[in-house]
Nucleic acid binder design. Structure first.
Lengths: 166, 166
DNA sequence: TATTGTTATACTCTATAACTATA
DNA sequence: TATAGTTATAGAGTATAACAATA
């Protein structure tokens, strides 16, 4: 089979630049989170997700929706956070199957410690090098791309049981 | 200890969109590489880097320049690839300290097997959702950002703090 | 039976530091 | 001494599948 459509140089450049920028940025961010708060990227994302909720609580399933991890991976991370006293876990009142994860005050405090550095890294590495027009363009274009990717079927969170009869 | 500069909503959106798109794309790409060729992302990158050289060879140090890994990590990956028969390793002729990694025919063949699917994933998830103008914008803006990030002082720009158990 | 989450297991990856050898 | 690379080790992260409990 021939290759579907030869990728154009500018298309390749767009893809590679996106990939490289994201990788370099992620690397710097993870180092900052580790150095300033002993957190990994996934752990920080979980804490930040919880803080975005007025109640500071989310079910495991709701948390998983925003992340790219398997369920067991999320359980593992939640256990780490609980062990560090940054969240608590308890069965949901309305559905005993569900686990509600709640941000503790210590978790909130740690976010307060880590956020300034986090913002600083993102600003100095990414935002400060962009014009306002650049930022508008990136936010608009990639925002649309993200929405389309999320709407697409191949979601990784769908570790659902496949019903293919043998 | 106020946050240096409050991040604007559009700035945050640009950052988060970039992060999410890259993560979703990477996830899809890695799955394709694994399914079609039994390769991890880093391994594919090494093979692709070698194929981009007319000679099909690169020194370990040259390879490391394009990747974000530590030396030991690169050694590990190179060993995996060698074990799979996709590359060979030999000391450089002009400098006995250096190791030259060479793409084998099997490695080249595997790239041939994997590339069509790889391109297809990138096109369907990213490129096909973008206009030509979008692609030009992304390539230009992020290309510049990447160059600046690479030129920037490595990783010591971030603040240093004591570690916390997590 | 389906859903929610955990556990058990096995494996991959990554980093740090110590080490060898060449320059 | 500095550079190129490997090895030893150790820890963290992830996925899959089996499992338990609730709906």
């Amino acid at each position: 089979m021939s290759e579907p459509r030869p990728i154009l140089p500018e298309q390749l450049e767009a893809y590679l630049a996106l990939k490289d920028v994201a990788a370099l940025l992620e690397h710097a961010v993870e180092k900052q989170l580790r150095d300033d708060g002993g957190l990994t990227g996934p752990q920080f994302q979980i804490l930040a997700s919880l803080r975005d909720m007025p109640s500071g609580k989310l079910r495991m399933t709701d948390l998983a929706d925003g992340l790219v991890y398997s369920r067991s991976g999320l359980t593992y991370q939640a256990a780490q956070l609980e062990r560090a006293g940054l969240v608590t876990r308890a069965p949901a009142e309305d559905d005993e199957r569900s686990t509600v994860v709640t941000l503790t005050q210590a978790g909130r405090d740690l976010l307060g410690v880590v956020m300034p550095g986090h913002i600083q890294v993102v600003q100095s590495l990414l935002l400060e090098t962009l014009t306002d027009a650049d930022i508008t363009a990136i936010a608009g274009i990639l925002g649309r791309v993200r929405d389309q990717m999320r709407a697409a079927p191949p979601r990784s969170a769908t570790t659902r049981r496949s019903k293919r009869p043998a």
